[in-house]
């Protein structure tokens, strides 16, 4: 597939936005400005970007505890996200969710999730609703290598398969479930092998190559939209940081880490864009500068926003309250 200049530049912009947002979050966390836990997506940007580029605002995604990248790629607003990380009243969840629970249902973002694997059956339900309402929309479920060991994975894959639901399961294999590396938590190399157990097509792609991810996702999305049912895409990638900010990740092999850092998806895409003559280094730097300004504005918005008031603890428990 030959992608247009506009597609590649849009990928670049999204990936740089995720990276810049995450680097800023790391800096703010280290400075003690963000409460709670923060799990960063640095190094995995190509997965969310390549997948979500196939979706419209009417399609649904379920995300994970490491969800900032998915949200940005699906159109989430960085100022509302940043305000939520600060726990401010102007945040996506009015300060009630935090990093692990950001959602924008109007954009089809059914939430980051603090329970590993929980998004899988939820995505199946959203896909069921798309099919039931015959609205042409689909659902994408993001989850990690660790979550593919949960019972939710088995039940979600099986139900989606027998009901032929329009859902794409995207496994971001970043090789680690907290400290436990993939070779220690499963006895197979390719998680896509598991698709066969459900009569579903499974494919493994280089998760640090945004074009490869885009193309594999395009195939899965096409199947889903045509009514051919679910598919499983495994994107092999690498979690650059610890599980959470503050985790020194001493369990990682430094050599492996070094190798993976050299496969950084962003310079790889930049090189491709430049080689194809779609843009020069200065053009890409301009994109990065604009993103930097956008993220700085998001921080300023968050910092100048009001805290929730204590009485807010009691609201939003029940609809119609």
């Amino acid at each position: 597939m030959q992608l247009a200049k506009e597609n590649l530049l849009a990928f670049y912009q999204t990936m740089v936005t995720i990276r810049t947002f995450e680097n800023k979050a790391a800096e703010l966390f280290a400075a003690g400005k963000l409460p709670g836990f923060v799990h960063l997506y640095i190094g995995e940007e190509a997965v969310a970007t390549g997948v979500c580029a196939n979706l419209t605002a009417k399609d649904y995604i379920t995300s994970t505890h490491r969800g900032h990248g998915h949200l940005i790629a699906k159109g989430g607003k960085v100022d509302l996200m940043m305000a939520e990380l600060y726990g401010k009243a102007t945040g996506y969840c009015k300060g009630k969710g935090g990093s692990m629970h950001i959602a924008d249902v109007d954009l089809g973002i059914l939430g980051a999730n603090g329970i590993v694997g929980a998004g899988q059956p939820i995505a199946v339900g959203a896909a069921f609703a798309c099919k039931y309402q015959q609205n042409g929309a689909i659902a994408v479920c993001f989850f990690g290598d660790g979550a593919s060991n949960r019972g939710t994975f088995h039940e979600a894959m099986n139900l989606a398969s027998i009901w032929k639901l329009p859902v794409v399961f995207v496994c971001e294999n970043n090789m680690y479930g907290i400290s436990n590396c993939q070779r220690d938590h499963m006895n197979i190399c390719d998680i896509s092998d598991r698709a066969a157990a459900y009569g579903v097509p499974g494919v493994t792609v280089d998760g640090n190559d945004v074009v490869a991810v885009f193309e594999a996702a395009a195939e899965g999305v096409k199947r889903a939209r045509q009514g051919d049912g679910p598919s499983l895409i495994e994107c092999k990638t690498w979690r650059w940081r610890g599980h959470f900010e503050g985790d020194p990740a001493t369990y990682k092999n430094p050599e492996e880490q070094k190798t993976w850092l050299q496969k950084d998806p962003i310079p790889r895409l930049a090189q491709k864009i430049i080689e194809l003559g779609h843009a020069g280094e200065a053009d890409l730097a301009n994109i990065a500068d604009a993103v930097k300004a956008q993220v700085a504005a998001a921080v300023a918005f968050a910092e100048s926003s009001p805290d929730p008031v204590p009485a807010d603890v009691l609201t939003d428990v029940y609809a119609g309250q």
């Binding site: 249902v105 899988q120 339900g125």
Partner: peptide, 9 residues
């Protein structure tokens, strides 16, 4: 789990 997803949308 699927009922949650369907209800949410």
């Amino acid at each position: 789990g699927s009922a949650v997803g369907a209800a949410a949308v």
